[in-house]
Amino acid sequence: MTLAEWEEAVQRNAEAIMAGEKVKQLSVLYDTPQHAQQFIELAKRAGACRDLRIRCKAALLDEKGRTIISPKTKMPVIGWSDWRPDIHKAA
């Protein structure tokens, strides 16, 4: 593979990632809101970014604000939720 072919493959891969909508954890190094916020600020200064938000795994809520319960397990459905300091306080 030549350098030009490699650069083209990297560009295609980057475009596919940027077009996707799947939520992924950045890294365990940024597992606190403070570290994640610092990373977001640095990334925005460094160049083009997409969908940088602090999210956490939490019980999902319906449109009325009630916890969604799984009919199969009778437990709350867990998924990615936007992190807000007023709601997610340390124990």
Rank of each mutant, 00 (worst) to 15 (best):
I87W: 03
G79S: 05
A46H: 06
V23D: 10
I69W: 14
E41A: 03
D82C: 08
R55I: 03
L42F: 10
L26C: 00
I54V: 15
E15I: 04
S27L: 12
K24A: 07
E63V: 08
E7N: 07
M18R: 14
K72I: 09
V23M: 12
K22A: 15
R45Q: 08
I54C: 07
T2R: 05
I68F: 12
P85M: 12
D82N: 14
F39E: 12
G20D: 09
A59D: 11
A36D: 08
F39N: 10
K57M: 01
T73M: 02
P71R: 15
G47R: 07
E63L: 10
D62C: 04
T2F: 08
A58I: 09
A59R: 14
L26T: 02
K24D: 06
Y30E: 06
M1K: 05
R12K: 12
M18E: 11
I69A: 06
Q34H: 06
K57S: 01
L26G: 02
G20L: 05
R12I: 01
S81T: 13
H88Y: 09
T32Y: 09
R53E: 11
V10G: 04
I69N: 05
G20H: 07
V28I: 14
L26F: 00
P33H: 06
R50W: 08
I68M: 14
L52P: 01
A91K: 13
A43N: 01
E63M: 06
F39L: 13
V10H: 10
L26S: 02
L61R: 12
A9V: 13
D86L: 01
R55F: 09
A48F: 09
R45D: 03
R66K: 13
K24E: 14
T73F: 04
V77M: 14
L60Y: 11
D82P: 05
Q25F: 12
R53A: 05
P85F: 06
V77P: 01
D51P: 06
A4N: 07
A43P: 01
R45W: 01
E5W: 03
A91G: 01
P85S: 13
P33I: 10
I68E: 10
R45L: 09
K74A: 05
P71K: 15
G65V: 10
D86A: 09
A46C: 09
A90M: 08
L42N: 04
R53L: 02
L29K: 15
T73Q: 04
A16C: 01
W83I: 09
L3T: 07
D51A: 13
D31F: 00
L61W: 08
I78A: 01
H88K: 05
M18P: 03
S81A: 11
L42T: 07
E15A: 05
L52R: 11
R84P: 00
